[in-house]
Design a protein around this nucleic acid. Sequence first.
DNA 1: CCACTGACGAGTG
DNA 2: GCACTCGCCAGTG
Length: 113
Amino acid sequence: MTRVVDPESSYQRIYAIVRKIPPGRVATYGQIADLAGLAGHARQVGYAMAALPTHGAVPWHRVINAQGRISMRRSGPGDSIVQQQLLEREGVRFDGGGRVSLATFRWRKRRRG
DNA sequence: CCACTGACGAGTG
DNA sequence: GCACTCGCCAGTG
């Protein structure tokens, strides 16, 4: 194949990865991209997230940027507030700057058992 | 086809 | 730690 991945398949693949993130954990766009076989294409993950509904089967709120911060969706910070509340309800702690400690809450697919 | 935009990331100063 | 720049790719006009 000339294409590394198919556009539509990449979206579904991204969603499949996100759904594997356990409660109380977060993952970065770059991490999802890497797991989905789209290393270096983190922006594509963000684009896929943008297409998700606020109330869906995909735990989109567990996906944050590499800075440990919640990225703003379109229009305003309203959704970011909801995202933070959802994460806090799962036990994820935010610091004064609205930032999550990736060293503590970053999801690891599996680290030598 | 070209220009602009968008839930990003890494590098530089 | 923050601001700026470049790279990446898909969607829209």
